[in-house]
C-alpha cells in the first residue's frame, strides 16, 4: 500500500499530510487524463503488474486504485 500511496502522491503532486481517503478525479484538480496515464505507468512499474483497459477505465478514485491493485 505504501507504494501505491507514493505513486498517487507523486503523480498528483500531493504532500505527505494530504489525506488520500476520499480522493477522486472530481475533487482533485491535478487528476486529469494525463495524470491517469502517469498513474498507470507508476502503478505498473512500482508493483510489477499489468492493468487491463477495463481496470484503467475504472481508476477514478483512490479507493478504486486500492481495490484494483489488491485484486492483482
Amino acid at each position: 500500500m505504501e507504494k501505491v500511496d507514493e505513486v498517487v502522491r507523486s503523480v498528483l503532486n500531493l504532500d505527505e499530510e494530504f489525506p488520500l481517503i476520499g480522493l477522486d478525479a472530481s475533487n482533485c484538480e491535478n487528476w486529469d487524463s494525463l495524470a491517469t496515464m502517469q498513474l498507470v505507468v507508476g502503478l505498473e512499474e512500482s508493483l510489477s503488474i499489468r492493468l487491463t483497459t477495463d481496470e484503467i477505465s475504472q481508476l477514478l478514485s483512490y479507493e478504486d486504485i486500492l481495490r484494483i491493485v489488491s485484486g492483482k
Binding site: V7, S10, V11, N13, Q38, V41, G42, E45, S46
Partner: peptide
C-alpha cells in the same frame, strides 16, 4: 531512468 522516474522528474522539473 525508468519510465515512471522519468515522468516524476519531468513533473517536478516543469513545476520549477
Amino acid at each position: 531512468l525508468t519510465p515512471f522516474e522519468s515522468l516524476k522528474f519531468w513533473n517536478n522539473y516543469r513545476e520549477a
